[in-house]
Design a protein around this nucleic acid. Sequence first.
RNA 1: GGGCGUUUAGCUCAGUUGGCUAGAGCACCUGCCUUACAAGCAGGGGGUCACAGGUUCGAGUCCUGUAAUGCCCACCA
Length: 913
Amino acid sequence: MSENNSFEMSKHYTPQQVEDKWYAKWEQAECFHSQIDADKKPYTIVIPPPNVTGKLHMGHALNNTLQDIMIRAKRMQGKNALWQPGTDHAGIATQNVVERELKKDGMHRDDLGREKFIERVWDWKEEYGASILNQLKKLGSSCDWSRERFTMDEGLSKAVRTVFVRLYKEGLIYKGRRLINWCPKDHTALADDEVEHEDKNGKLWHIKYPIKDSSKFLTVATTRPETMLGDTAIAVHPDDERYTDLVGTMVILPIVEREIPIIADDFVDPKFGTGCVKVTPAHDPTDYECGLRNNLEQIIVIGPDGTMTEAAGKYQGLERFRCREKLVEELEAKKLLEKIDEHPHSVGHCYRCNTVIEPYLSEQWFVKMKPLADKAIAATEAKKVNFHPQRWESVYLSWLTNVRDWCISRQIWWGHRIPVWYCEDCGEEIVEEADPTECPKCKSSNLKQEEDVLDTWFSSALWPFSTLGWPEKTEDLKYYYPTNTLVTDRGIIYFWVARMVMMGLHFMKEVPFSDVYIHGTILDEFGAKMSKSKGNGIDPIVMIEGGTQQRLGSEFKCEGYGADAVRYTLAALTTEGQDIKLSPTRFEMGRNFINKVWNASRFVMMNLTEIELDNTEIKTEELEFEDRWILSRLNEVIYDTSNAIDNFRFIDITKAIYDFTWRDYCDWYVEMVKSRLKSGGRSSVVAGRVLAWVLDNLLRLLHPIAPFFTEEVWSELGKIAPNRGLGANSAKAGEFIMLESWPVIVEELRNTDIEESMNRVQNVVRAIRNIRAKFNIPHNDKVPAVINAANEKFVDSIKNCVDQICLQAVAENIELGVNLDKPKLAASEVLDGAQVFVPLSGFMDVELEKKRVGKDLKVKEKSLNALKAKLHNEGFIAKAPIEVVEREKERKIELTRQIQELKEMAASLESEN
RNA sequence: GGGCGUUUAGCUCAGUUGGCUAGAGCACCUGCCUUACAAGCAGGGGGUCACAGGUUCGAGUCCUGUAAUGCCCACCA
């Protein structure tokens, strides 16, 4: 669009022509940039850093839309808004991606070696790592890209090392040989919360273990027979009288032929199975604990790659599940298998690759959690961190309360290598921030760094302060930390939110953010989680730009709704904490609304170019009825919108703006002002200025939700109506709406009397329109009408609006007053405070009208009866607040009047028949 | 096994501290291409608020229980 040719604005808004242009302008003008400004309060959000391997999905689109709404609103509200962006190195996920690429070339990471492989990953990151950030830009995200960080960049790596070394020296990081969760495919340890449990229909094998020096057997039940090769005891409950005599004697472990003791331990549930449990300390967490208590040997029979070890004897080298089959066959052959039961139980899977997790005994690094968790619990209970919706607080607290030590070492290559060195000569363990060159103890330079890297979440936990320059004592940290709001999904409350709180408190002595907003999860139209494997995802970029995608087994084509429509729709679907069932067509809601505002803007600009706008002050007394009404409503919607933003009520933000724009501004104000615009003169100037001012305000309110659209329209409006205010020569606006100030409430413009009058006008107009529709009056035929008011107050409140009523209802010769007679052959509607008659002459259908009146009478009599009963209730009169009782009494009087009028109408119709 | 949600119109959902006749979008019916908008305008139909008790003058809203459904946690060998 070029200057002053708004007549050529297309009937439909086309986002594709607008969005990239504005994003480039914003970036060029550094609109997203935030820097320290002592005169302004900061408002900071750190982005949940997407994985560098990531592709924008609907969850991201929702998450970032909500963050951008908050950031843009606060920026307009005068805060120094910083949205800190960046990406996460995503250890296992990224390593897997690059390994898959290598595989295509027939290579394995071992072929390259550690250094070359890591180089390869960095290359991959440089090439593809920014793609998800570019997608965030398509969404309109106003992140300060000049501050973009990566969890493995230099500064953040330094933060990681500092944290590790300090925690180590404080005794909060230690190395230990423990039973941990092992993924045989990714070949690494995992933290407890990285294991996903799935219910499976498994089997329970009952195996007979011969008792030594006896012909009898003890039967144990197991879901994992292959682990029996590593059994080192049989346990029974100490009080289980069936076995008291056997405790202390031995059984022969079948196949292996090892003698193992029968021990007593109260973890055994005597009611389950036979009450005898095989104990495999190296392959089961419960058995591990039992083994420690009873000093049992730990025999590792399954190796890190998921195949059986040398200790498995003849089964050595067999894959674990293949071994299970073979072993069961052998037991069966030896008649040692008593029975096999169906047994549903939960099986742990790797959250990255879905492989069945193997409990594995190995040396790993751990963070001692209790001291850190205690601080987080205390801070949360002191309301330093507030969850929205609040119920997530208890979920988070119960995790913190029961948290176990965090296994942070990973046996992969891509990540922060643990800053621990071992002296090859004297065995000294050296833990330093800087790479050591010699052993402090024996001065040897023969040092070897720990092979393991840290869990990805270790660096994510530092995100709110590491991105602001920590461990340096930066001004940014002083100014922006603690941040304000964290917006995320419930899925990472443990992984991320809790750990950030712990680390923030420990290293910064302050919580990292005061509010945590947990939004719902996006589901497909059937209520299922979106996933790659189900193919039910909706690609946000396709929704924004248009294109095709494979979905639910067929090709799905989308014209492209634009980022604003996508954002609007997502915000409109965001109710406090509810999951969102989404289908592609739901974005029509946003598209239609944006298009409606587009057309309203088009109307305004078309008209503004036709009238001589001036820069004089619009005096209050020059405002006409509808002007005063829309300005009053505008103030209300500013209040409601601001309030909704402060309370994270995203659906309420959209609803307030939608209703005001569509129902008030378009349906009524624009319609009421049309004739004035054509009439010329001062009245048209006033109307034009009010139209522009209200549009300007509503664009500002809408901007956080629909940034591209509002920027485009606002800039066009500025060309036609440079004076945005109602005052004389109001201050000239800036270049970008995104940097404009948030609309301010002007109390003097609130006018409840006008709103009440307008309500009456609308009711009268609707009544006439209703009658017109029911009796099929051609839409250009003006009808006469009689408004028989119940009192003078009603007459006074709308008497200046009679012409307007005529215009809106396509009526003429309206008679307004009290005690007016019903005209002949008229239809009527009874409203609060008045009865409207429309004489119909040739269109009159007495039978139809009798039906209408009868129906209305029935409904009203029913509510009157209910109301009478209520008012006869002594309890109600005595206990309900006076206002409520008074209101009901007035309502009764009004209803009685209406019923009376309906009855008279009915009688009159009878006589006309 | 424990914890937390959800159940309101044909569909998807609002309904903030209990209080006027329970709302919206989509879908549906009727009439309109009325020079901002058919992605639209005007009018309309449609709900024993899952069920059963209870508290209260008054319950969609609070309490107890039941049923369906979903999510999370848990050492169910």
